[in-house]
Design a protein around this nucleic acid. Structure first.
Lengths: 142, 142
DNA sequence: CATTTACATTAAAACAATTCTAAACTGTTG
DNA sequence: CAACAGTTTAGAATTGTTTTAATGTAAATG
């Protein structure tokens, strides 16, 4: 199975037809070896720069949301300015570099498992996420 | 020292003069016994409803930001729609109820301390926050 | 193989949260 | 009271995101 058919499959699974534009987006998201963190703005810039083709914002948003809904992308909340997305959809944690606004994966192996002693009646835990904010030593805390 | 002088002090510390509007905001934020979580929108609604007076959005934003900068309020990132603020500025964690969009404090006692084995060269850890998303049992995971 | 139909793409408009601006206001201080 | 530094305000501007309405495309049907 080559990449194109993998992407086609992912799109179909997400309820989308495999169009030229969407396949381009897939290539950017899913071909890199290492997982990749981005905002919609980042992605739009990459498309403009690397691809000769222009894809409209609406298409980008639609596609990303369909992938998120299906679970092929994870949304990460850092600050309320913008949404970050992560191609690593496994349960894992993050470092956020306040100097560069960069998001760095932190695997479960890098953190002792988080043990929660309290629980909310009638509610089930859906996810546990640790966010570690870092900055250069000589930086003010935010 | 009565409340007014405490508020005056907080405002001065945050680099703001104690004006009528700002004291009203302080009263809402700092008089309740228990800590309180809110969005700017929540706060604006409370001011409109509870107070006879109208305070302009710009003043609310300015005041909240000055308090945040000074450390009298903490900003919590849940999703990218809006900013949540917390009057509990001690290091602590949160439950987020996906059904009601409600934020619930989780003290350090309720979580075994988080031990991070990895570190980022040249960077210092500024904060470690755990966010536990919960929902009713029969709810779809997001 | 032309037509229908459902889904796609697009630019632009709408929207919501937040920030900025410029004018009017308040309260001190010389 | 005049001057000034900091405030408040309504509304405009900005930013990220979603919606809309027109047009385009491609698979399915007859």
């Amino acid at each position: 199975m080559n990449n194109i058919s993998i992407y086609t499959e992912k799109l179909r699974e997400s309820g989308l037809r495999p169009t030229r534009q969407r396949l381009k987006i897939c290539e950017l998201l899913f071909s890199p070896e290492k997982t990749f963190h981005f905002t919609i703005n980042d992605l739009t810039k990459i498309i403009e720069d690397k691809l000769s083709e222009k894809i409209s914002l609406a298409t980008i948003y639609n596609t990303i949301h369909a992938f998120k809904k299906k679970g092929y992308l994870k949304e990460i909340s850092i600050n309320s300015d913008k949404s970050y997305f992560d191609t690593n959809v496994t349960e894992h944690h993050h470092f956020f570099d306040e100097d560069t606004n960069e998001l760095i994966d932190c695997s479960n192996d890098d953190i002792d498992s988080v043990n929660i002693k309290k629980n909310i009646t009638g509610k089930k835990i859906k996810s546990i996420e640790v966010l570690i904010k870092v900055a250069s030593d000589n930086q003010n805390q935010n």
